[in-house]
């Protein structure tokens, strides 16, 4: 899909994209507009999302979930640009990879010189379920204003062995315990889907493909 979208003043829009192989989004946000974007992939995909806050008090939320195996690859580039101050952006990206799957995240965050009082948050956490999967993550922050709040974090790791043993000690099979941890890990990004029906459907689908 390839789209250019303008969010009018105070407009609120939710977009949920599931398994689109090629995403090109250009979104421009006007005064006080709110965007909540979910990109959910369990097939290979190339995502490129460019979002500009061109007026103040905008809210931009991006949630990405990728569950990949068997040589699948997801590349996600987000470019969030605070051109005017007083806006909020939040990015939550979760990749779970196994069996030679590859994940690649480039997160560009730009805060212009006059975009004071911007608040930006970027969190990318990744789980590698075996030794063959790879994840590349590159947070890229360009901040030219001096009165802003910007946080970012990227971690890549394995399932928590302590938690797995704890669950097994309560009688939960290793396999079921792994599933529960993966679902919990991905849920954080999916729970924010406002359409309950769509959310339940996605959670069930993800549960069934694990």
């Amino acid at each position: 899909m390839c789209e250019e979208i303008v969010l009018k003043a105070n407009e609120s829009r939710d977009i949920v994209i599931v398994n689109e192989p090629n995403v090109r989004l250009r979104i421009s946000q006007e005064e006080g507009s709110q965007l909540r974007l979910h990109i959910i992939d369990w097939q290979s995909a190339d995502n490129d999302v460019h979002i500009e806050q061109v007026a103040s008090n905008c809210v931009t939320e991006i949630y990405q979930v990728a569950y990949l195996k068997d040589n699948q690859k997801v590349t996600t580039h987000t470019n969030v640009r605070h051109l005017v101050g007083g806006g909020v952006s939040k990015q939550v990206l979760r990749f779970v990879l196994s069996e030679h799957a590859k994940g690649d995240f480039l997160g560009t965050l730009y805060i212009a010189k006059d975009a004071q009082k911007s608040c930006a948050e970027q969190s990318n956490r990744n789980l590698l379920l075996d030794d063959t999967a790879t994840m590349r993550t590159r947070p890229q922050l360009e901040i030219y204003a001096d009165d802003v709040q910007a946080t970012h974090g990227a971690t890549t790791g394995q399932l928590d062995e302590n938690a797995l043993f704890y669950m097994q000690q309560r009688g939960i099979s290793r396999q079921a315990a792994e599933r529960m941890l993966i679902v919990a890990f991905l849920s954080e990004a999916i729970e924010t889907i406002r359409n309950e029906e769509q959310k339940e459907k996605l959670l069930n689908t993800i549960d069934s493909i694990l």
Partner: peptide
Amino acid sequence: PAEIPGVSMVNFMRTA
């Protein structure tokens, strides 16, 4: 005891 973020006590206990 291990902490298990994202897994509720109810879900955990019912499964066990």
